[in-house]
Amino acid sequence: TEEYEYTDEQQAREAAREWREKGYTVTIEEHNGRWRVKTG
């Protein structure tokens, strides 16, 4: 599992979409105004 943090929701969603296209399972969670994208 890798985790990436973004301050911008749009960036987080874009990144998540790219990971999904590569076949990863992706979770996005908002935490204190930051967006965490977890792949695994």
Rank of each mutant, 00 (worst) to 15 (best):
Y4S: 06
G23W: 02
E9D: 03
I28W: 03
K22S: 05
V26I: 05
R34D: 03
V26S: 03
V37Q: 00
Q11T: 13
D8S: 13
R13Y: 11
E18I: 14
W19V: 02
E9P: 06
E9S: 04
G23K: 03
E18V: 14
H31A: 09
Q11M: 11
E30H: 12
E9M: 06
R20Q: 13
A12R: 00
N32W: 04
R17Y: 07
T1L: 13
W35M: 01
R13M: 13
V37G: 01
E2S: 13
G40N: 14
R20P: 01
A12E: 00
Q11E: 14
Q10A: 13
Y6E: 01
Y24T: 03
T27M: 08
Y24N: 03
E2T: 14
I28F: 04
E9I: 10
Y4P: 04
Y24W: 07
T7V: 11
A16W: 05
E9W: 09
W19Q: 04
Y24G: 02
R13G: 04
R36H: 14
Q10K: 12
G40W: 15
R36W: 15
E3W: 15
T39D: 03
Q11L: 10
R17E: 11
T1C: 09
Q10G: 10
A15L: 05
E30K: 10
R36M: 14
K22W: 06
T39K: 14
R34V: 15
K22H: 06
E14A: 12
T1E: 13
T1H: 13
N32R: 05
V37R: 00
T1D: 11
K38A: 07
I28N: 01
R13P: 00
E29P: 00
E30P: 07
Q10R: 11
E9K: 05
A12M: 03
A12I: 01
E29M: 09
H31V: 14
R34N: 08
E29V: 11
A15K: 10
Y6V: 02
A12T: 02
Q11N: 07
Y24L: 07
T7I: 11
K22T: 03
T25H: 13
E3L: 12
T7G: 11
E29G: 04
T39S: 06
V26Q: 00
Q10Y: 11
R17M: 09
W19G: 02
R17T: 07
Y6P: 01
T1K: 10
Y4E: 08
H31R: 10
R17A: 12
Y4Q: 07
K22M: 10
E2Y: 15
Y6I: 02
W35N: 00
A15C: 08
W35E: 00
T1Y: 14
T39E: 04
Y6G: 02
A15V: 09
T7A: 14
E5R: 05
I28R: 00
G23N: 03
K22D: 03
W35H: 01
K38H: 10
H31K: 11
T39H: 10
E5P: 10
Y4R: 08
G40Q: 15
E14P: 00
A15T: 05
E3I: 15
V37P: 01
K38N: 09
A16T: 03
E2M: 15
R13H: 11
D8R: 04
T39G: 05
Y24M: 06
E5D: 09
T27H: 09
G33V: 01
I28L: 09
